[in-house]
Amino acid sequence: MKIVLPGDKISDTPVRMENAIVENGKTYATVIGMMDESRGAFIPLESVWYPREGDFIVGIIENSKNNVYTVSMDSPFRGLILPPPRPRFGGRGGRDERFGRHEERREIMHMGDIVSAFVKEVKREADQIILILDRPRRLTGGKLIEVRPSKVPRIIGKESTMLRQLETGTKCTILVGLNGIVWLNGEDVPLAQKAIAKIQEEAHVGGLTERISELLENKGR
């Protein structure tokens, strides 16, 4: 694996991909990353988050106005949780047999509340990109930490193996937002924090899984 820097050529042909640009028919990296020449894959070592439909995020309720919640996600994108659609039948807060009473379908949230959600739509508004969020869930207690969005795949691991290992080893619930905010709650939060810091520092060094299980077994000592 070769380290690639912004401006380095990664292909002699035009390849449309994230973290790269095409110029004069050739493809150049725009962030620092690793080139896996055998697979022709470019893996960013650092990157910012580009939201996509279906992305899981963790954020903080920043504002609530006219039944719309604004969610801050430590990114240039602003998240919105819109009021649930009015039921077609049953009007006036009545009961819709299929959906239940619509007022009940959304938790009341306050400024500063921690929330997880999914990106339903990436919308380009007049002055910035807005993310319409879906399936919000208020998270109580716990702790938020910031991680580098490019390290999120390593924190989760292949088929969530790393994440499960972290959760078991620290007896914590860990929600990893693709926006780079992670919510930790449970028994040994400081240990979980330490392990995640280690994953971030050493994400590019082989044998990470073993070192993390060692750290967890020794309770960080």
């Binding site: 912004p6 640009i21 725009t30 070592l45």
Partner: peptide, 11 residues
């Protein structure tokens, strides 16, 4: 900037 992951076309 190159170490931050903010995309740039050259250093």
């Amino acid at each position: 900037v190159a170490s931050s992951g903010i995309p740039m076309k050259d250093i």
